[in-house]
Design a protein around this nucleic acid. Sequence first.
RNA 1: GGAGGGGUUCCCGAGUGGCCAAAGGGAUCAGACUGUAAAUCUGACGCGAAAGCUUCGGUGGUUCGAAUCCACCUCCCUCCA
Length: 431
Amino acid sequence: MSSALLADLRARELVFQVAGEDELPAWLDGGSRTLYCGFDPTADSLHIGHLVPLLMLRRFQQAGHRPLALVGGATGLIGDPSFKDQERKLNTPEVVASWVDKIRGQVSRFIDFDAGANSAEVVNNLDWVAGLDVLAFLRDVGKHFSVNAMIQKESVKQRLDREGSGLSFTEFSYMILQSYDYAELNARYDCSLQIGGSDQWGNITGGIDLTRRMHGAKSFGLTVPLITKSDGTKFGKTESGAVWLDPARTSPYAFYQFWLNTADADVYRFLKYFTFLEVADIDELERADAERSGRPEAQLVLATEVTRLVHGEEGLAAAQRISASLFSGDLAALSETDFAQLKQDGLPSSTVERKALPATLTQMLTEAGMANSGKQVKDALGRNAVLVNGDALSWEDNGSPVEVFAEDRGRYGRYYLTQLGKKKHHLFELL
RNA sequence: GGAGGGGUUCCCGAGUGGCCAAAGGGAUCAGACUGUAAAUCUGACGCGAAAGCUUCGGUGGUUCGAAUCCACCUCCCUCCA
């Protein structure tokens, strides 16, 4: 069944590099194996860049293997230099510890802890690194590493070559720590496969080498490709920054919209990366979309699937509710409770007291987070791109929020669905 | 410790005394076109409704006037020890 897994992964183009390629299929077929993937706490939430490896763990689990999600309480204190172009700031132990907790919770959504023999587990490398003493570490672990080899690694090369940046010993040692994780997990859990992003290749092979040297054990590594976009821009970024998995940082609605806006040139590839739909079905969808003219259906499928995966049925329903009311243009159909529901569903909204209305619309919309500066609002007003409950405003209206948000212009006397441009919506409730 | 090079608006990167809120590119935002795409074209892009205000690592000087000159400090890079 595992050769089938590998075949499926390849069909999805999810396999970038493999260490131990010749033996891996047979090894996987030989029984339920333990594998791991590490997630360093560099923020209080994971983002969609982490999604592919996360889903990868799940794919392996579905194929009968046991996934370990390693949260890097120790490595997060050091900072991974791999392909970073500059040294990173160190976070305090307290902060990292709090992030570890959050990320442990997030990771847990994707793998099954109650699957009998191949139940997943979350581990924290701080558990075995914290007690390590320096001399023992240098003698027992450091001795296995050749600096000559380490500086040959592609992942640190640009930092060594590049003018204007350097590489501290702290970050340089990261690879050793992560390698030690692998060796440790191998000893503790018989874990013999590590997966990760392609930027982790150097760390993974380092771990394989160390595992062999310390324990004489054979282990494997597999990386997933870097997710690229056809237009060359970085995947996972929006105007407002990264797309997070934490609903408090990126609402299910915004999350859904992110996927909905996937370019045609990327969407079928992304369906293979980010969903559990069969490859054949995705190909079929692509064919169907190509035959039809107009908007393809793939984005809708992608947004639906991934939102459900990350935010559950409820999150998906909320995202769909908001999207439908905002983009189908049928505002008049919204009932009073619908408005309340939209607020609850995560449509950006704010409550303003009538007597506390700002003097200008630029101020008001900027404060609401619809624009970064008054200039942008001004620009939009000048182009009839600001609408309140469907009516376009002009620059002349800027000084008179009181009239714009007058009671008789509101829905049910208090709701003002405001849009700036086509995609930015904000619901003002005036009291 | 020594020698040299450098820190400019989100990023890259011009700018060596006034014409500089600071070239150019990228990113971003808005408009047209569309499918809530892509490509393309247009406009905006330090803050402010405006008057005006605040920027060029930091502090203090020189000067009518400084991102540009001087002093000190700080951070980074390269080479030497």
